[in-house]
Design a binder for these strands. Structure first.
Lengths: 337, 337
DNA sequence: CTGATAAGCCGAACCGGTTAAGTAACGGCG
DNA sequence: CGCCGTTACTTAACCGGTTCGGCTTATCAG
């Protein structure tokens, strides 16, 4: 219950408040001896800087913002986000930065949040996820002058600093693998096409399907288990049945697996399934799901480092994090003959 | 984006800063006419209070703290937390409170975080989850004078305000159901026994097993899919095989289902599975899992309301949120004859 | 010995609000 | 008419830091 202030330290050291501030912030203006004395007293009194005061005068909040514009339901279902947040946190807590996490319903609310944060000076910078095609958040952030790192392909980032994974290469790898198993048809259960990542994978899928001379079809969903299941059911029961299905996340892949089993089909004997965004989910099903794996926690950490760099004056640039890696498990195999 | 301050509003309205503050905070001391004028100007200028300044003078941060002391891995796997956080957020954003979310490795770090927050005056109150038996956080929070609402049984809360669900009643309901199907044996794949909820369910399980004259056995795990799978494998392959298994979360139940299938057994024909903490996971497996369901999002919201009440001077008390409800799906049935 | 330079420190303004204390005007009442 | 209690503001202190201009004093070149 100490409530130790800089003034108290100044009193005990017999110097002014200003000198104490310089000493504590490792800035020139005090002698080594005084600095040492101040630091010693501060440590003895267990002084902790008052965030509000520091923020008010220094105009730094030492807080990053992250807005998630997805339904509460999606957030609960998708392991992706918690992992990403965990990665962000791991970096921030080292630097004793804080994270302002806000869950909102849609992009409009997300933009309102940015306006509010910018006006309140609540955050030093933001991490922007779920990049869209022609994302309206980009001009807004520019206008607000809010430092930001976007999570997504440079093609979508319009010159803003971003961190990305190569979705095109990953889609190529996935389809090369499927084709190499002998499949002649492949379906894609995709997220909403307005999502930048989905858009990029859509295009990559089209190109790769033509290149490999496969029968390709695409179903767009909202990323949810329900729609993933529905899409799978339709693919397997209506029209020519694809022998391989590639999902845009692991949740839909797991839901798809249940549909396959519910229809009395077998995986991979009747149909090959490939998930995206590999998480534990893919490992605990039976059979375990083949997936395009990438390290979400590391991704969150990487993005956070880039934002810190940006605030330290680094030049904005696109930064390739990694390319998802195909992890072959038990849900993929040769097509039925 | 020049920042609008209260001073600017005062200038334009021709009144003092103080008057503006009274007007904006709905406090007596200004006439209705002046108040209206101030509010109008503030709206026109799109004034937003500077959080740091307000916090510094009013000693309120309008921020709640939530520390999650689990491995990043667990957080990623368990849908529970994201749902809880979502519920907390939904209440806070209405009140324009913020949430400081911190992910740490263990209870020691969690306590260090509370110390830091208390010293910095960073949060007005905290929400404490994963209550333990003889939880060391309780005396610490008392000492720090940090307002807190605990999530857990009053028996564990030592008089601190808490919100709980009746784990004993839920366990009774689960075992009554299993016994009513004709099962004579039941196993429990539990979390770590130092967790208060686990402890309570352990005791309830023992009592109910005796009451119903069942063969009971308990395996303790770390809540993870890996250990849940291992426990299931052991139960089904070593010694007398239980005909029903009750899990402490849904993740382990899903992992258990995969083990059952991997062993060539069928659910529910060979073994009945019951999950806890019902989430989408339980619905998207095949067969879908019978579960003790409770509304995590609502739980988070409820806890947050209690903390707000507490800060508004409400008397600390225990508050029963709800009792988990048994949702019967396809993983439970009569035991093999 | 003198003047310039710089290191070390002080005092005070400042960030943007909240709030206690003080003041002027007004109206009711004996 | 004078006294008193409200009402509606204003003034200024304060929260706990950061930072800038300026004052001493020591150092050193000329």
């Amino acid at each position: 219950m100490s409530r130790v202030t800089i003034k108290e330290i100044a009193r005990r050291c017999g110097v002014s408040q200003g000198a104490v501030s310089y000493a504590l912030n490792n800035q020139p203006g005090v002698s080594a001896a005084t600095r040492a004395r101040v630091l010693k007293v501060a440590a003895e009194l267990e002084w902790v800087p008052n965030r509000a005061a520091r923020q008010l005068s220094a105009a730094r909040s030492e807080t990053f913002g992250l807005v998630l514009a997805r339904s509460a339901q999606t957030l609960v279902e998708e392991p992706y986000f918690m992992g990403f947040v965990g990665g962000v946190q791991s970096v921030l807590s080292d630097k004793s930065y804080a994270l302002a996490l806000q869950v909102v319903a849609d992009l409009d609310e997300e933009q309102a949040t940015y306006r509010k944060w910018a006006a309140e000076r609540r955050v030093d910078g933001v991490i922007v996820v779920d990049l869209r095609v022609d994302d309206p958040r980009i001009p807004l952030l520019r206008k607000l002058g809010l430092p930001a790192v976007l999570v997504g392909d440079p093609a979508l980032a319009d010159g803003m600093p971003c961190v990305w994974t190569d979705g095109t290469a990953a889609m190529n790898a996935a389809l090369d693998y499927v084709a190499s198993l002998g499949h002649r048809s492949a379906a894609r259960v995709a997220g909403p096409p307005e999502y930048g990542d989905v858009w990029i994978r859509d295009r990559a899928f089209d190109v790769a399907v033509r290149r490999l001379d496969l029968e390709g079809q695409v179903c767009h969903t909202d990323f949810s288990a329900v729609e993933g299941a529905a899409a799978t059911r339709e693919l397997l029961t209506v029209g020519p049945r694809p022998t391989a299905i590639i999902y845009d996340n692991d949740l839909m892949a797991v839901a798809g697996l249940a549909v396959v089993q519910g229809l009395g089909l077998r995986t991979p004997d009747d149909v090959t399934l490939v998930a995206w965004d590999d998480s534990t989910l893919c490992r605990i099903t039976h059979p375990a799901l083949t997936a395009m794996s990438h390290n979400i926690v590391g991704y969150g950490a990487e993005v956070t480092h880039r934002l810190l760099d940006l605030l330290n004056g680094a030049r904005p640039q696109a930064h390739l994090y990694s390319t998802p890696l195909l992890i072959v498990r038990d849900s993929s195999g040769r097509p039925p003959s």
